[in-house]
Design a binder for these strands. Structure first.
Lengths: 232, 232
DNA sequence: AAGTTTTTCAATCAAGTGTTTGACAGCTGG
DNA sequence: CCAGCTGTCAAACACTTGATTGAAAAACTT
Protein backbone atom coordinates (compact mmCIF):
# COMPACT_ATOMS: atom_id res chain seq x y z
CA UNK A 1 0.00 0.00 0.00
CA UNK A 2 2.23 2.84 -1.10
CA UNK A 3 0.22 5.16 -3.33
CA UNK A 4 -3.19 3.52 -3.05
CA UNK A 5 -5.66 5.34 -5.25
CA UNK A 6 -3.83 8.60 -4.92
CA UNK A 7 -2.56 9.88 -8.24
CA UNK A 8 0.51 11.98 -7.73
CA UNK A 9 0.70 15.33 -9.43
CA UNK A 10 3.59 14.25 -11.61
CA UNK A 11 1.62 11.30 -12.94
CA UNK A 12 -1.54 13.32 -13.44
CA UNK A 13 0.26 16.15 -15.19
CA UNK A 14 2.82 14.22 -17.14
CA UNK A 15 5.38 16.74 -15.96
CA UNK A 16 8.79 16.17 -17.39
CA UNK A 17 11.05 14.29 -15.03
CA UNK A 18 14.13 16.41 -15.52
CA UNK A 19 12.75 19.50 -13.83
CA UNK A 20 14.74 20.39 -10.77
CA UNK A 21 12.94 21.39 -7.65
CA UNK A 22 13.66 25.05 -8.07
CA UNK A 23 12.25 24.94 -11.54
CA UNK A 24 9.27 23.10 -10.09
CA UNK A 25 8.53 26.04 -7.86
CA UNK A 26 8.36 28.39 -10.80
CA UNK A 27 6.48 25.71 -12.69
CA UNK A 28 3.71 25.59 -10.11
CA UNK A 29 3.56 29.34 -10.12
CA UNK A 30 3.19 29.31 -13.89
CA UNK A 31 0.49 26.65 -13.78
CA UNK A 32 -1.45 28.68 -11.24
CA UNK A 33 -1.26 31.77 -13.42
CA UNK A 34 -2.37 29.84 -16.46
CA UNK A 35 -5.31 28.23 -14.67
CA UNK A 36 -6.31 31.55 -13.17
CA UNK A 37 -6.22 33.26 -16.56
CA UNK A 38 -8.49 30.69 -18.11
CA UNK A 39 -10.98 30.72 -15.27
CA UNK A 40 -10.98 34.50 -14.86
CA UNK A 41 -11.59 35.03 -18.55
CA UNK A 42 -14.46 32.56 -18.57
CA UNK A 43 -16.17 33.43 -15.30
CA UNK A 44 -14.88 36.83 -14.33
CA UNK A 45 -12.59 37.77 -11.47
CA UNK A 46 -15.30 37.52 -8.84
CA UNK A 47 -16.81 34.15 -9.45
CA UNK A 48 -13.61 32.10 -9.32
CA UNK A 49 -12.41 30.77 -5.97
CA UNK A 50 -8.85 29.90 -5.02
CA UNK A 51 -9.94 26.29 -4.86
CA UNK A 52 -11.21 26.40 -8.42
CA UNK A 53 -7.80 27.64 -9.49
CA UNK A 54 -5.62 25.30 -7.46
CA UNK A 55 -7.74 22.33 -8.44
CA UNK A 56 -7.35 23.09 -12.13
CA UNK A 57 -3.64 23.68 -11.64
CA UNK A 58 -3.28 20.41 -9.68
CA UNK A 59 -1.80 22.32 -6.80
CA UNK A 60 -2.55 22.65 -3.12
CA UNK A 61 -4.92 25.31 -1.82
CA UNK A 62 -2.07 26.96 0.04
CA UNK A 63 -0.05 27.35 -3.14
CA UNK A 64 -1.70 30.62 -4.13
CA UNK A 65 -0.97 32.26 -0.81
CA UNK A 66 2.57 30.91 -0.91
CA UNK A 67 3.38 32.11 -4.41
CA UNK A 68 1.34 35.30 -4.62
CA UNK A 69 0.75 36.29 -1.01
CA UNK A 70 -3.00 36.37 -1.42
CA UNK A 71 -5.77 35.88 -3.92
CA UNK A 72 -5.64 39.57 -4.66
CA UNK A 73 -1.95 39.28 -5.43
CA UNK A 74 -2.67 36.62 -8.02
CA UNK A 75 -5.38 38.75 -9.59
CA UNK A 76 -2.92 41.61 -9.87
CA UNK A 77 -0.35 39.37 -11.56
CA UNK A 78 -2.90 38.08 -14.06
CA UNK A 79 -3.93 41.61 -14.87
CA UNK A 80 -0.41 42.89 -15.28
CA UNK A 81 0.95 39.97 -17.31
CA UNK A 82 -0.50 41.02 -20.64
CA UNK A 83 -1.84 44.51 -20.19
CA UNK A 84 1.53 46.04 -19.38
CA UNK A 85 3.22 44.68 -22.51
CA UNK A 86 0.24 45.83 -24.53
CA UNK A 87 0.41 49.35 -23.18
CA UNK A 88 4.15 49.40 -23.82
CA UNK A 89 3.71 48.26 -27.39
CA UNK A 90 1.07 50.91 -27.89
CA UNK A 91 3.52 53.57 -26.84
CA UNK A 92 6.26 52.06 -28.98
CA UNK A 93 4.05 52.16 -32.06
CA UNK A 94 3.00 55.69 -31.28
CA UNK A 95 6.65 56.69 -30.98
CA UNK A 96 7.33 55.24 -34.42
CA UNK A 97 4.38 57.05 -35.94
CA UNK A 98 5.32 60.39 -34.46
CA UNK A 99 8.95 59.95 -35.44
CA UNK A 100 7.89 59.16 -38.98
CA UNK A 101 5.72 62.25 -39.35
CA UNK A 102 7.93 64.72 -37.56
CA UNK A 103 6.18 67.99 -36.83
CA UNK A 104 3.11 67.41 -38.97
CA UNK A 105 0.23 65.70 -37.18
CA UNK A 106 0.04 61.98 -37.97
CA UNK A 107 -3.00 60.49 -39.73
CA UNK A 108 -5.77 59.63 -37.31
CA UNK A 109 -6.02 56.15 -38.74
CA UNK A 110 -2.42 55.36 -37.84
CA UNK A 111 -2.82 56.54 -34.27
CA UNK A 112 -5.98 54.51 -33.86
CA UNK A 113 -4.19 51.51 -35.30
CA UNK A 114 -1.41 51.85 -32.76
CA UNK A 115 -4.03 52.06 -30.06
CA UNK A 116 -5.88 48.89 -31.06
CA UNK A 117 -3.44 46.59 -32.79
CA UNK A 118 -1.27 45.56 -29.81
CA UNK A 119 -4.14 43.47 -28.51
CA UNK A 120 -4.00 41.43 -31.67
CA UNK A 121 -0.24 41.07 -31.75
CA UNK A 122 0.12 40.16 -28.09
CA UNK A 123 -2.56 37.51 -28.28
CA UNK A 124 -0.04 35.10 -29.75
CA UNK A 125 2.26 35.53 -26.76
CA UNK A 126 -0.48 34.05 -24.65
CA UNK A 127 -1.14 30.38 -24.19
CA UNK A 128 -4.80 31.29 -23.99
CA UNK A 129 -7.04 30.85 -26.97
CA UNK A 130 -7.81 34.01 -28.86
CA UNK A 131 -11.33 34.23 -27.51
CA UNK A 132 -10.28 33.80 -23.87
CA UNK A 133 -7.47 36.28 -24.26
CA UNK A 134 -9.77 38.97 -25.56
CA UNK A 135 -12.34 38.21 -22.91
CA UNK A 136 -9.71 38.55 -20.22
CA UNK A 137 -8.39 41.81 -21.62
CA UNK A 138 -11.91 43.21 -21.81
CA UNK A 139 -12.39 42.34 -18.16
CA UNK A 140 -9.11 43.92 -17.16
CA UNK A 141 -9.74 47.15 -19.05
CA UNK A 142 -13.46 47.39 -18.59
CA UNK A 143 -14.45 46.34 -15.13
CA UNK A 144 -13.43 49.28 -13.04
CA UNK A 145 -10.03 50.84 -12.95
CA UNK A 146 -10.17 51.39 -9.22
CA UNK A 147 -9.25 47.75 -8.65
CA UNK A 148 -6.26 47.62 -10.91
CA UNK A 149 -2.87 47.22 -9.21
CA UNK A 150 -1.27 50.61 -8.76
CA UNK A 151 1.53 49.82 -11.20
CA UNK A 152 -0.91 48.78 -13.94
CA UNK A 153 -3.07 51.82 -13.39
CA UNK A 154 -0.14 54.20 -13.69
CA UNK A 155 0.84 52.53 -16.94
CA UNK A 156 -2.67 53.01 -18.21
CA UNK A 157 -2.74 56.66 -17.32
CA UNK A 158 0.54 57.60 -18.93
CA UNK A 159 -0.40 55.63 -22.03
CA UNK A 160 -3.77 57.34 -22.25
CA UNK A 161 -2.21 60.76 -21.77
CA UNK A 162 0.16 60.17 -24.68
CA UNK A 163 -2.60 58.98 -26.97
CA UNK A 164 -4.87 61.78 -25.97
CA UNK A 165 -2.21 64.26 -27.00
CA UNK A 166 -1.78 62.44 -30.29
CA UNK A 167 -5.51 62.46 -31.00
CA UNK A 168 -5.58 66.12 -30.13
CA UNK A 169 -2.98 66.83 -32.82
CA UNK A 170 -4.98 64.79 -35.33
CA UNK A 171 -8.17 66.69 -34.58
CA UNK A 172 -7.12 70.22 -33.64
CA UNK A 173 -10.54 71.70 -34.28
CA UNK A 174 -12.38 69.40 -31.85
CA UNK A 175 -12.90 70.92 -28.37
CA UNK A 176 -11.16 69.25 -25.44
CA UNK A 177 -14.30 67.96 -23.80
CA UNK A 178 -15.69 66.65 -27.04
CA UNK A 179 -12.44 64.84 -27.72
CA UNK A 180 -12.65 63.10 -24.35
CA UNK A 181 -16.04 61.75 -25.25
CA UNK A 182 -15.04 60.56 -28.68
CA UNK A 183 -12.06 58.70 -27.29
CA UNK A 184 -14.30 57.14 -24.71
CA UNK A 185 -16.77 56.00 -27.34
CA UNK A 186 -13.96 54.44 -29.34
CA UNK A 187 -12.65 52.61 -26.28
CA UNK A 188 -16.13 51.31 -25.62
CA UNK A 189 -16.43 49.95 -29.12
CA UNK A 190 -13.07 48.22 -28.72
CA UNK A 191 -13.78 46.68 -25.32
CA UNK A 192 -17.23 45.48 -26.24
CA UNK A 193 -16.02 43.72 -29.34
CA UNK A 194 -13.27 42.04 -27.36
CA UNK A 195 -15.72 40.92 -24.71
CA UNK A 196 -18.03 39.39 -27.28
CA UNK A 197 -15.41 38.25 -29.75
CA UNK A 198 -16.67 34.72 -29.62
CA UNK A 199 -20.26 35.59 -30.46
CA UNK A 200 -19.26 37.91 -33.27
CA UNK A 201 -16.94 35.37 -34.78
CA UNK A 202 -19.81 32.89 -34.75
CA UNK A 203 -21.94 35.33 -36.72
CA UNK A 204 -19.16 35.95 -39.18
CA UNK A 205 -18.53 32.33 -39.92
CA UNK A 206 -21.98 32.04 -41.42
CA UNK A 207 -20.99 34.56 -44.06
CA UNK A 208 -18.62 34.00 -46.93
CA UNK A 209 -14.93 34.64 -46.54
CA UNK A 210 -12.75 33.99 -43.53
CA UNK A 211 -13.13 36.66 -40.84
CA UNK A 212 -9.56 36.89 -39.68
CA UNK A 213 -8.56 38.92 -36.70
CA UNK A 214 -7.00 41.37 -39.10
CA UNK A 215 -10.23 42.13 -40.93
CA UNK A 216 -12.12 42.58 -37.69
CA UNK A 217 -9.38 44.87 -36.47
CA UNK A 218 -9.67 46.93 -39.60
CA UNK A 219 -13.41 47.23 -39.22
CA UNK A 220 -13.04 48.44 -35.68
CA UNK A 221 -10.43 50.97 -36.70
CA UNK A 222 -12.55 52.24 -39.58
CA UNK A 223 -15.55 52.61 -37.31
CA UNK A 224 -13.61 54.43 -34.63
CA UNK A 225 -11.86 56.72 -37.10
CA UNK A 226 -15.16 57.65 -38.72
CA UNK A 227 -16.66 58.35 -35.31
CA UNK A 228 -13.70 60.46 -34.24
CA UNK A 229 -13.65 62.41 -37.50
CA UNK A 230 -17.40 62.75 -37.82
CA UNK A 231 -17.79 63.49 -41.49
CA UNK A 232 -14.60 65.47 -41.88
CA UNK B 1 -36.75 46.51 30.00
CA UNK B 2 -38.97 46.29 26.97
CA UNK B 3 -37.05 47.49 23.93
CA UNK B 4 -33.64 47.96 25.49
CA UNK B 5 -31.28 49.31 22.86
CA UNK B 6 -33.21 47.68 20.07
CA UNK B 7 -34.59 50.21 17.61
CA UNK B 8 -37.69 48.90 15.89
CA UNK B 9 -37.92 49.11 12.10
CA UNK B 10 -40.81 51.55 12.26
CA UNK B 11 -38.86 53.93 14.44
CA UNK B 12 -35.68 53.58 12.40
CA UNK B 13 -37.47 53.97 9.08
CA UNK B 14 -40.06 56.49 10.04
CA UNK B 15 -42.62 54.41 8.17
CA UNK B 16 -46.06 55.99 8.08
CA UNK B 17 -48.39 54.62 10.70
CA UNK B 18 -51.43 54.19 8.49
CA UNK B 19 -49.96 51.40 6.35
CA UNK B 20 -51.91 48.18 6.70
CA UNK B 21 -50.12 44.91 7.04
CA UNK B 22 -50.78 43.96 3.44
CA UNK B 23 -49.46 47.27 2.19
CA UNK B 24 -46.43 46.76 4.40
CA UNK B 25 -45.63 43.59 2.50
CA UNK B 26 -45.45 45.40 -0.81
CA UNK B 27 -43.54 48.17 0.91
CA UNK B 28 -40.84 45.80 2.12
CA UNK B 29 -40.63 44.29 -1.32
CA UNK B 30 -40.16 47.74 -2.80
CA UNK B 31 -37.51 48.66 -0.24
CA UNK B 32 -35.62 45.46 -1.02
CA UNK B 33 -35.69 46.22 -4.74
CA UNK B 34 -34.51 49.75 -4.16
CA UNK B 35 -31.67 48.69 -1.89
CA UNK B 36 -30.64 45.96 -4.30
CA UNK B 37 -30.59 48.36 -7.23
CA UNK B 38 -28.32 50.77 -5.43
CA UNK B 39 -25.93 48.12 -4.23
CA UNK B 40 -25.87 46.21 -7.51
CA UNK B 41 -25.14 49.34 -9.47
CA UNK B 42 -22.33 50.32 -7.14
CA UNK B 43 -20.70 46.95 -6.55
CA UNK B 44 -21.93 44.68 -9.30
CA UNK B 45 -24.30 41.75 -9.05
CA UNK B 46 -21.68 39.38 -7.66
CA UNK B 47 -20.24 41.30 -4.79
CA UNK B 48 -23.47 42.06 -2.97
CA UNK B 49 -24.78 39.57 -0.43
CA UNK B 50 -28.38 39.10 0.62
CA UNK B 51 -27.39 40.39 4.03
CA UNK B 52 -26.02 43.58 2.52
CA UNK B 53 -29.35 44.13 0.84
CA UNK B 54 -31.63 43.26 3.73
CA UNK B 55 -29.57 45.33 6.11
CA UNK B 56 -29.81 48.40 3.92
CA UNK B 57 -33.52 47.79 3.45
CA UNK B 58 -33.98 47.35 7.21
CA UNK B 59 -35.52 43.96 6.60
CA UNK B 60 -34.88 40.45 7.80
CA UNK B 61 -32.52 38.12 5.95
CA UNK B 62 -35.40 35.83 5.13
CA UNK B 63 -37.30 38.63 3.41
CA UNK B 64 -35.56 38.17 0.07
CA UNK B 65 -36.41 34.50 -0.12
CA UNK B 66 -39.95 35.23 1.00
CA UNK B 67 -40.61 37.94 -1.56
CA UNK B 68 -38.49 36.79 -4.49
CA UNK B 69 -38.02 33.08 -3.92
CA UNK B 70 -34.24 33.36 -4.02
CA UNK B 71 -31.41 35.77 -4.50
CA UNK B 72 -31.44 34.95 -8.18
CA UNK B 73 -35.11 35.86 -8.35
CA UNK B 74 -34.35 39.28 -6.94
CA UNK B 75 -31.56 39.80 -9.45
CA UNK B 76 -33.96 38.94 -12.23
CA UNK B 77 -36.51 41.44 -10.95
CA UNK B 78 -33.91 44.18 -10.71
CA UNK B 79 -32.77 43.49 -14.23
CA UNK B 80 -36.26 43.42 -15.66
CA UNK B 81 -37.61 46.45 -13.86
CA UNK B 82 -36.03 49.05 -16.10
CA UNK B 83 -34.67 47.21 -19.09
CA UNK B 84 -38.02 45.92 -20.26
CA UNK B 85 -39.66 49.37 -20.33
CA UNK B 86 -36.59 50.69 -22.12
CA UNK B 87 -36.76 48.04 -24.80
CA UNK B 88 -40.47 48.67 -25.20
CA UNK B 89 -39.93 52.39 -25.59
CA UNK B 90 -37.22 51.72 -28.14
CA UNK B 91 -39.68 49.73 -30.22
CA UNK B 92 -42.38 52.35 -29.78
CA UNK B 93 -40.07 55.08 -31.05
CA UNK B 94 -38.99 52.92 -33.95
CA UNK B 95 -42.63 52.32 -34.83
CA UNK B 96 -43.23 56.05 -34.91
CA UNK B 97 -40.22 56.65 -37.12
CA UNK B 98 -41.14 53.96 -39.59
CA UNK B 99 -44.75 55.13 -39.69
CA UNK B 100 -43.59 58.66 -40.35
CA UNK B 101 -41.35 57.71 -43.26
CA UNK B 102 -43.61 55.11 -44.89
CA UNK B 103 -41.80 53.09 -47.52
CA UNK B 104 -38.68 55.20 -47.76
CA UNK B 105 -35.87 54.20 -45.39
CA UNK B 106 -35.72 56.44 -42.30
CA UNK B 107 -32.66 58.57 -41.57
CA UNK B 108 -29.97 56.65 -39.74
CA UNK B 109 -29.74 59.35 -37.13
CA UNK B 110 -33.37 58.94 -36.15
CA UNK B 111 -33.06 55.18 -35.77
CA UNK B 112 -29.97 55.56 -33.66
CA UNK B 113 -31.75 58.15 -31.56
CA UNK B 114 -34.61 55.73 -30.91
CA UNK B 115 -32.06 53.12 -29.92
CA UNK B 116 -30.24 55.29 -27.38
CA UNK B 117 -32.68 57.85 -26.06
CA UNK B 118 -34.93 55.59 -23.97
CA UNK B 119 -32.14 55.18 -21.45
CA UNK B 120 -32.22 58.91 -20.87
CA UNK B 121 -35.98 59.21 -20.67
CA UNK B 122 -36.46 56.23 -18.37
CA UNK B 123 -33.83 57.43 -15.95
CA UNK B 124 -36.35 59.82 -14.44
CA UNK B 125 -38.73 56.97 -13.69
CA UNK B 126 -36.09 55.58 -11.39
CA UNK B 127 -35.51 56.62 -7.84
CA UNK B 128 -31.84 56.01 -8.46
CA UNK B 129 -29.53 58.85 -9.21
CA UNK B 130 -28.62 59.26 -12.85
CA UNK B 131 -25.16 57.88 -12.39
CA UNK B 132 -26.32 54.76 -10.54
CA UNK B 133 -29.07 54.14 -13.06
CA UNK B 134 -26.67 54.18 -15.98
CA UNK B 135 -24.19 52.03 -14.14
CA UNK B 136 -26.90 49.50 -13.43
CA UNK B 137 -28.11 49.48 -17.01
CA UNK B 138 -24.57 49.01 -18.26
CA UNK B 139 -24.21 46.01 -15.98
CA UNK B 140 -27.49 44.53 -17.11
CA UNK B 141 -26.73 44.94 -20.81
CA UNK B 142 -23.03 44.36 -20.72
CA UNK B 143 -22.14 41.61 -18.33
CA UNK B 144 -23.18 38.53 -20.20
CA UNK B 145 -26.55 37.93 -21.71
CA UNK B 146 -26.52 34.27 -20.74
CA UNK B 147 -27.55 35.18 -17.21
CA UNK B 148 -30.47 37.39 -18.05
CA UNK B 149 -33.91 36.07 -17.10
CA UNK B 150 -35.47 34.30 -20.06
CA UNK B 151 -38.21 36.91 -20.40
CA UNK B 152 -35.73 39.78 -20.50
CA UNK B 153 -33.53 38.01 -22.99
CA UNK B 154 -36.41 37.36 -25.37
CA UNK B 155 -37.33 41.03 -25.18
CA UNK B 156 -33.76 41.93 -26.04
CA UNK B 157 -33.63 39.65 -29.02
CA UNK B 158 -36.86 40.80 -30.62
CA UNK B 159 -35.87 44.43 -30.07
CA UNK B 160 -32.46 43.85 -31.63
CA UNK B 161 -33.98 42.07 -34.61
CA UNK B 162 -36.27 45.01 -35.29
CA UNK B 163 -33.47 47.53 -35.06
CA UNK B 164 -31.17 45.42 -37.15
CA UNK B 165 -33.77 45.41 -39.92
CA UNK B 166 -34.13 49.18 -39.58
CA UNK B 167 -30.38 49.75 -39.79
CA UNK B 168 -30.28 47.45 -42.80
CA UNK B 169 -32.77 49.69 -44.58
CA UNK B 170 -30.75 52.77 -43.69
CA UNK B 171 -27.54 51.24 -45.04
CA UNK B 172 -28.54 48.97 -47.90
CA UNK B 173 -25.08 48.91 -49.43
CA UNK B 174 -23.36 47.56 -46.28
CA UNK B 175 -22.91 43.76 -46.27
CA UNK B 176 -24.77 41.80 -43.60
CA UNK B 177 -21.70 40.77 -41.66
CA UNK B 178 -20.23 44.22 -41.73
CA UNK B 179 -23.51 45.64 -40.46
CA UNK B 180 -23.42 43.26 -37.50
CA UNK B 181 -20.02 44.57 -36.54
CA UNK B 182 -20.93 48.20 -36.86
CA UNK B 183 -24.00 47.74 -34.68
CA UNK B 184 -21.86 45.97 -32.15
CA UNK B 185 -19.34 48.78 -32.10
CA UNK B 186 -22.12 51.29 -31.55
CA UNK B 187 -23.56 49.26 -28.70
CA UNK B 188 -20.12 49.11 -27.12
CA UNK B 189 -19.74 52.87 -27.29
CA UNK B 190 -23.13 53.26 -25.65
CA UNK B 191 -22.57 50.78 -22.84
CA UNK B 192 -19.12 52.04 -22.01
CA UNK B 193 -20.27 55.61 -21.71
CA UNK B 194 -23.09 54.53 -19.42
CA UNK B 195 -20.74 52.51 -17.25
CA UNK B 196 -18.38 55.46 -16.83
CA UNK B 197 -20.96 58.21 -16.86
CA UNK B 198 -19.76 59.50 -13.54
CA UNK B 199 -16.14 59.85 -14.56
CA UNK B 200 -16.98 61.48 -17.86
CA UNK B 201 -19.30 63.95 -16.22
CA UNK B 202 -16.51 64.86 -13.86
CA UNK B 203 -14.27 65.66 -16.82
CA UNK B 204 -16.98 67.68 -18.44
CA UNK B 205 -17.68 69.84 -15.44
CA UNK B 206 -14.21 71.27 -15.66
CA UNK B 207 -15.04 72.69 -19.06
CA UNK B 208 -17.32 75.61 -19.78
CA UNK B 209 -21.01 75.08 -20.38
CA UNK B 210 -23.31 72.65 -18.66
CA UNK B 211 -22.93 69.08 -19.90
CA UNK B 212 -26.51 67.97 -19.81
CA UNK B 213 -27.58 64.44 -20.50
CA UNK B 214 -29.01 65.68 -23.75
CA UNK B 215 -25.72 66.96 -25.11
CA UNK B 216 -23.93 63.76 -24.14
CA UNK B 217 -26.67 61.77 -25.81
CA UNK B 218 -26.23 63.80 -28.97
CA UNK B 219 -22.49 63.28 -28.99
CA UNK B 220 -22.95 59.55 -28.67
CA UNK B 221 -25.50 59.50 -31.46
CA UNK B 222 -23.27 61.59 -33.73
CA UNK B 223 -20.33 59.30 -33.07
CA UNK B 224 -22.32 56.14 -33.71
CA UNK B 225 -23.95 57.52 -36.84
CA UNK B 226 -20.59 58.54 -38.26
CA UNK B 227 -19.18 55.11 -37.51
CA UNK B 228 -22.14 53.34 -39.05
CA UNK B 229 -22.03 55.53 -42.16
CA UNK B 230 -18.25 55.60 -42.48
CA UNK B 231 -17.73 58.63 -44.63
CA UNK B 232 -20.91 58.30 -46.70
C1' DA C 1 27.61 14.04 4.41
C1' DA C 2 24.89 17.11 7.13
C1' DG C 3 22.52 21.42 7.35
C1' DT C 4 19.72 25.07 5.25
C1' DT C 5 16.31 26.79 2.36
C1' DT C 6 12.48 26.31 -0.61
C1' DT C 7 8.28 24.11 -1.72
C1' DT C 8 4.27 21.09 -0.91
C1' DC C 9 0.48 19.28 1.66
C1' DA C 10 -3.47 17.87 4.77
C1' DA C 11 -5.84 19.85 8.31
C1' DT C 12 -7.87 23.59 10.24
C1' DC C 13 -9.44 28.41 11.05
C1' DA C 14 -12.89 32.12 11.43
C1' DA C 15 -15.96 34.44 8.67
C1' DG C 16 -19.35 34.71 5.26
C1' DT C 17 -22.64 32.53 1.85
C1' DG C 18 -27.80 31.55 0.43
C1' DT C 19 -31.55 29.27 2.36
C1' DT C 20 -34.84 27.10 5.69
C1' DT C 21 -37.31 26.72 9.84
C1' DG C 22 -40.81 27.37 13.36
C1' DA C 23 -42.68 30.58 16.25
C1' DC C 24 -45.01 34.89 16.49
C1' DA C 25 -47.72 39.12 15.22
C1' DG C 26 -51.32 41.48 12.75
C1' DC C 27 -54.72 42.21 9.49
C1' DT C 28 -58.87 39.97 6.97
C1' DG C 29 -63.10 37.79 6.18
C1' DG C 30 -66.49 34.77 8.08
C1' DC D 1 -64.67 36.53 18.25
C1' DC D 2 -61.90 33.68 16.07
C1' DA D 3 -59.86 30.71 12.21
C1' DG D 4 -56.81 31.82 8.39
C1' DC D 5 -53.98 34.11 5.73
C1' DT D 6 -49.77 37.33 5.22
C1' DG D 7 -45.72 39.03 6.68
C1' DT D 8 -41.76 39.30 9.99
C1' DC D 9 -38.08 37.60 12.72
C1' DA D 10 -34.22 35.23 15.37
C1' DA D 11 -31.91 31.16 15.00
C1' DA D 12 -30.00 27.69 12.76
C1' DC D 13 -28.77 25.17 8.48
C1' DA D 14 -25.16 23.17 5.44
C1' DC D 15 -21.75 24.92 2.70
C1' DT D 16 -18.09 27.83 0.67
C1' DT D 17 -14.86 31.44 1.18
C1' DG D 18 -9.61 33.10 1.70
C1' DA D 19 -6.08 32.26 4.74
C1' DT D 20 -2.91 29.87 8.11
C1' DT D 21 -0.51 26.22 10.43
C1' DG D 22 3.12 22.87 11.30
C1' DA D 23 5.03 19.07 9.60
C1' DA D 24 7.00 16.58 5.84
C1' DA D 25 9.46 16.44 1.54
C1' DA D 26 12.43 17.99 -1.93
C1' DA D 27 16.26 20.71 -3.56
C1' DC D 28 20.20 23.37 -2.81
C1' DT D 29 24.61 24.66 -0.18
C1' DT D 30 28.68 23.82 2.12
Amino acid sequence: MDGRGVVTRQAAQGKQRGATRRESGAETRRRLLEAAEELFSQEGFERVSVRDITERASANVAAINYHFGSREGLVGQVMARYINPINEERLRLLDEIEARHGDSPPPLEEVMDAFVRPFATQVSRSELSERLFFKLMARVCGDQLAELPAEVERGFETMLARFRAAFRRCLPEVPEEELTWRIHFAVGAMLHSMAHWEMLNRFSQGAAGSPTTETILNRLIQFAVAGMNQGR
